[in-house]
């Protein structure tokens, strides 16, 4: 696609939670054993009254400060599974709060871990089709709101965060070789069952607060098979080999998933980017945050070829190649 990611900013939940807090809340947890799998030492949590939309607005505002004229933005794509309301769409609220044009395209995209790549494909297609020129792609989630303090599978892992990316027209093909995947047979392995229509329509419905349920073993088996295959599919589509990729920036699912990805691909550690240690898993924001930090750290520079792969809740997965243009 002749589009480029011109800028990325991000925003994290206001509260920093380290693993001492987990231990205080759950004295019987073996924190060392948990960290050996998750790799997460600190998480960011949203504070009281702070929603995913608030985090997205903060990230968006940071990006808009860099622009001479925000009226160039004619589209908003907001990826979230933590909307402010069932309706209206959160993108409408964001448009108003950021002071963006009213004659603009705006849509919410309900995807989780795979959401940034889906968002890129969506935004890029809108620009390539000629419908739009500059899209503000936002990702944000507050999964911590769905997670019980005693949930040993999910609580040590997930963080609240948001990202903002400016997607613009480009003279060269900077984002390419997309692959997508969907397998709804895995839907129940990472799910918030209560609160929405399937629950409300149930004649035996009783209100219970929304709570995330994750079957870690099933999710892990899905990633073990699908992620290397997805990377293989991107390479086959592009005609490239792993040697020609400067950096793999995967969804920061957990240390366990990335360790096994490194093993199965037979790559050296410096070929893959990780930042879950003090960021946790911020769902659809992990990849844009990782891209931004990799750039700041000099792991990628203008001209670098990045392979990005995202996978998780749904099951849903997607990946692409990104030639760093800025």
């Amino acid at each position: 696609m002749k589009v480029a990611i011109k800028s990325i900013t991000f925003s994290l939940g206001s509260i920093v939670e380290d693993n001492n807090v987990l231990k205080e809340d759950n004295p019987d947890w073996d924190i060392d054993a948990i960290v050996a799998k998750t790799g997460v030492e600190k998480r960011r949590l949203s504070s009281d009254g702070e929603t995913a939309v608030d985090l997205a607005i903060r990230a968006g505002a940071k990006l808009l400060e860099k622009l001479d004229d925000i009226s160039v933005i004619d589209g908003i794509v907001f990826v979230t599974q933590s909307p402010d309301y069932f309706l209206p769409s959160s993108c409408c609220i964001i448009q108003e709060k950021l002071g963006l044009r009213t004659d603009s395209y705006a849509v919410d995209l309900n995807q989780g871990c795979s959401g940034y790549i889906y968002g890129l494909a969506h935004a890029g297609s809108l620009i390539e089709s000629g419908l739009l020129n500059n899209v503000l792609l936002l990702t944000a989630d507050t999964y911590s709101r769905y997670i019980s303090k005693t949930d040993r599978t999910s609580r040590p892992l997930f963080s609240d965060g948001a990202s903002a990316s400016l997607i613009t027209r480009s003279d060269e093909s900077s984002i390419s070789d997309f692959i997508f995947g969907t397998d709804g047979s895995g839907a129940n392995n990472l799910i918030v069952e209560s609160g929405a229509m399937r629950d409300i329509c149930n004649p035996t419905h009783n209100y219970t607060p929304p709570e995330l349920k994750m079957n870690g073993a099933n999710i892990f088996m899905f990633t073990l098979g699908q992620v290397p295959k997805g990377i293989g599919a991107i390479l086959a589509k592009s005609g490239l080999s792993l040697d020609q990729i400067d950096l793999i920036v995967p969804h920061q699912a957990s240390k366990l998933v990335l360790d096994n990805l490194v093993r199965k691909l037979g790559i050296k550690e410096e070929k893959i980017y990780r930042n879950y240690k003090d960021k946790g898993n911020t769902v659809s924001s992990t990849i844009p945050i990782a891209l931004s930090q990799a750039r700041d750290e000099g792991r990628i520079k203008e001209g670098s070829l990045v392979l990005s792969i995202a996978f998780g809740v749904g099951y849903s997965w997607a990946g692409c190649l990104i030639k760093v243009s800025h």
């Binding site: 054993a33 870690g216 892990f220 096994n260």
Partner: peptide
């Protein structure tokens, strides 16, 4: 549940074949 993940990793590493397609092992 954490120990079971260790078993799955070990089986995938040590068995000459790919266990990732065997979803039944998860449970």
């Amino acid at each position: 549940s954490l120990g079971h993940l260790s078993i799955l990793v070990a089986l995938d590493k040590d068995i000459d074949g790919n266990i990732s397609g065997i979803s039944e092992l998860a449970t």
